Simulated scan of single mutants.
Amino acid sequence: MVGKFLNRIQENKFVLWSLILTITVIWGYAWVLMKESLNFMGPFVFSSFRFGIGAVTLLLMVVFLKVGFPSRESWKHLLVVGLLQTAIVFLLVMFALKFVDAGKSSVLLYSMPIWSSILATKFLHEKITPAKLTGLFLGMLGLLAILGGDIWMGQDIGVIFGELLIIIAAISWGISNVYYRLHVQHLSKIQATAFQMLFGAIVILIVTLFMEWGEPIQFNAVSVYYILFTGILASALCFFVWFVIISVVDIVTATLSTLLVPLFGLLFSSFFLNETMSFSMIIGFIFIIFGIAVAQIRKPRRV
């Protein structure tokens, strides 16, 4: 079933780019729901529901597709990936959303390729090309433009703290990418996604029990919609489709396509949440996008 799906995507570019556009729109829109969910429950409670439902959905897909469970030797590595990619990233991001606008948060988190490039040079022994150096420099300028602009304008200390938390989350995501390449890459993509999300959801639940036990939760049609949309669509199905996509296209194309996520995040946040974009934020976003794009440039191979 999966094989036929992969063949169809490889043969039809329209289907491929439709899938890429669909998941980046969903991920961009999810930032609005993540921000709005804080009106109904704590950030950690929401993350527990979201990734709990996402993990269950993926595990059902593992069973339905008859993929099988990973070996026990892989569980410790999946636990590390789940801790870095799901637990730490979204615990920090959801807490930071209490202070930082959704659009700006999406831009800062998707500086992740910058940190991945730095770490890959050290731990995966990838060469630092002039393009990568230039890209990293531009990306850093973008982050400094956003943070520096807020500091210069006397932004509330809570906002600055939240922005730093999101940058730490982006670094954690970058570390998880490198760790995945070193220890988990041999597993089936859906296996790795399902079990890292399961372990990450367990860690989030433990933190939630300690930090938000007894806090009020409002369940209604809106809050349940937020949980189901981000859990089933934005977490489980989109990550599955994403891993299918990177199985049939080169990693450069795949990475560049993720730049659409903060773009949609900014647009949706501006439309639904009436968030405004400062000049320093726009400049920072442009620098980060160009930085990541330039870093992906490769020299043509000599024949």
Rank of each mutant, 00 (worst) to 15 (best):
M1Q: 03
K4C: 03
F5R: 01
L6A: 09
I9L: 13
K13D: 02
K13G: 03
F14Q: 08
W17N: 12
S18M: 10
I20F: 00
L21G: 13
I26H: 00
I26F: 06
G28W: 00
W31E: 01
V32C: 04
K35M: 02
S37R: 04
F46I: 12
F46D: 04
S47Q: 11
F49D: 10
G52Y: 09
I53K: 01
L59K: 00
L60K: 02
M61Q: 04
V63L: 14
V63Q: 09
K66P: 08
F69Q: 11
S71L: 14
R72D: 05
S74D: 07
W75C: 08
V80L: 11
V80M: 12
T86K: 05
V89F: 02
F90R: 01
M94R: 03
V100Q: 03
D101C: 03
V107Q: 07
L109Q: 06
Y110Q: 12
S111K: 11
S116L: 11
I118R: 02
A120W: 07
P130M: 06
P130Q: 11
P130G: 04
G139T: 08
G139Q: 11
M140C: 08
G142Y: 02
G142D: 08
L143W: 03
A145F: 15
I146C: 07
M153R: 12
G154S: 08
A169P: 09
I171F: 09
I175D: 06
S176K: 04
Y179L: 06
H186G: 10
L187M: 04
I190Q: 11
F195V: 09
Q196A: 06
M197Y: 10
L205M: 11
L205V: 13
V207G: 01
T208R: 03
F210V: 14
E212V: 08
E215V: 13
E215T: 13
P216V: 06
S223Q: 05
Y225E: 08
Y225A: 09
L228I: 05
F229L: 06
T230E: 06
T230A: 09
G231D: 07
I232Y: 04
A236K: 04
V241I: 14
V241W: 10
W242I: 01
I245V: 11
D250T: 03
T255D: 01
T258G: 09
L259Q: 06
F264D: 02
G265M: 00
L273F: 08
L273R: 07
E275N: 04
E275Y: 02
T276M: 13
M281G: 14
M281Y: 15
I288L: 07
I289R: 05
I292A: 05
A293L: 00
Q296D: 04
Q296T: 11
I297C: 00
R298L: 06
R302H: 12
